[in-house]
């Protein structure tokens, strides 16, 4: 491993240990993606030979790729950690889905509202998440220990100054702290680390023939028969892969021939668009991530 990656790893392990040392009831968000895979790996390293002393929490919209769910269950078992899965059943019963509702409404209810429900129910005070500063402009300003007011709101003006490697996790009841151990990693670092450490990731990241349809100029995979095809529309088989993973109707695939980590690393280094390009939810409105974050989105 390069000296640079080794120091990123050491920093992340230090952050995860601080989160645990300063928390009453910590939890780690687990979204099954490559960043979650790296974060889980780092957590296991931080506490080896013990299992990490916190549960994993997955907010399941019920629209994830099927492969992701199978992978999630296997990883939780392998790590020896407790897996908590939460779905906003009330909204699901009300018929909220990613097809009839715009992505803003859908994400707001099935992800952000669901997340708050799960965090309130678990009474978690420190929530470890996989966000990175290079992902998006409003995230570049995020603290490693990010303060949330009651109701999980993020107010950029209330963030505590964060100097050196000293973190202030003191809170009053109802408030919480989100901790981002991958803050200083870039997408390229994540891939390089996955390669160096041989970390298992969901196969959807690798190119393979998959059934897709074109929507708004982007390839969307038809992962199950809930996908409403337009009249006359037939999914076609294309060799595609995903740069990020989320709800399958909202996650665009890219045409790619990268079937190994090395090929992905190479593709990432020459990529001309950011990985969030494939996330339909970020294009809703200008500064949309800043707004979502204020409401409590990760």
């Amino acid at each position: 491993m390069s000296g640079y990656l080794a120091s990123l790893e050491a920093e992340s392990i230090e952050i995860i240990r601080e989160a645990v040392a300063l928390a009453e009831k910590p939890v780690m968000m687990y979204s099954i993606g490559k960043d979650s895979s790296v974060m889980l790996h780092l957590a296991r390293k931080a506490f080896w030979p013990a299992a990490p002393p916190f549960p994993l929490l997955h907010v399941d919209t019920t629209w994830k790729f099927r492969e992701m769910i199978a992978f999630r269950n296997r990883m939780a078992q392998e790590s020896g950690m407790k897996l908590l899965v939460h779905t906003n059943h009330q909204r699901k019963a009300e018929g909220v889905n990613p097809f009839t509702y715009d992505s803003d409404t859908y994400t707001g209810l099935m992800k952000t509202e669901a997340l708050k429900q799960a965090l309130d129910a678990g009474k978690f005070d420190v929530i470890i998440g996989g966000a990175r500063r290079d992902e998006e402009k409003s995230r570049a300003k995020e603290r490693i220990f990010s303060f949330r007011s009651p109701g999980h709101r993020w107010d950029p003006k209330l963030q505590r100054p964060e100097l050196w490697n000293i973190y202030n996790a003191r809170i009053h009841p109802g408030e919480s702290i989100r901790v981002f151990p991958l803050s200083n990693w870039t997408e390229a670092d994540i891939w390089q680390y996955i390669a160096d450490e041989n970390i298992e990731i969901v196969k959807l990241y690798f190119a393979a023939p998959r059934p897709v349809v074109k929507r708004s100029g982007q390839w969307i995979m038809v992962d199950d028969d809930r996908f409403p095809l337009n009249p006359g529309e037939v999914p076609e088989m294309r060799t595609v892969r995903f740069r990020t993973l989320g709800c399958y109707p909202l996650t665009a695939a890219i045409e790619s021939k990268a079937t190994t980590i090395a090929e992905i690393v190479e593709e990432t280094q020459t990529a001309r668009t950011s990985e969030r390009q494939g996330r339909l939810i970020d294009h809703d409105q200008s500064a949309s991530m800043e707004k979502k974050k204020q409401e409590g989105y990760f």
Partner: peptide, 9 residues
């Protein structure tokens, strides 16, 4: 490219 938050823009 770097002035990220809407309030500061």
């Amino acid at each position: 490219l770097v002035d990220g938050l809407q309030s500061e823009r």
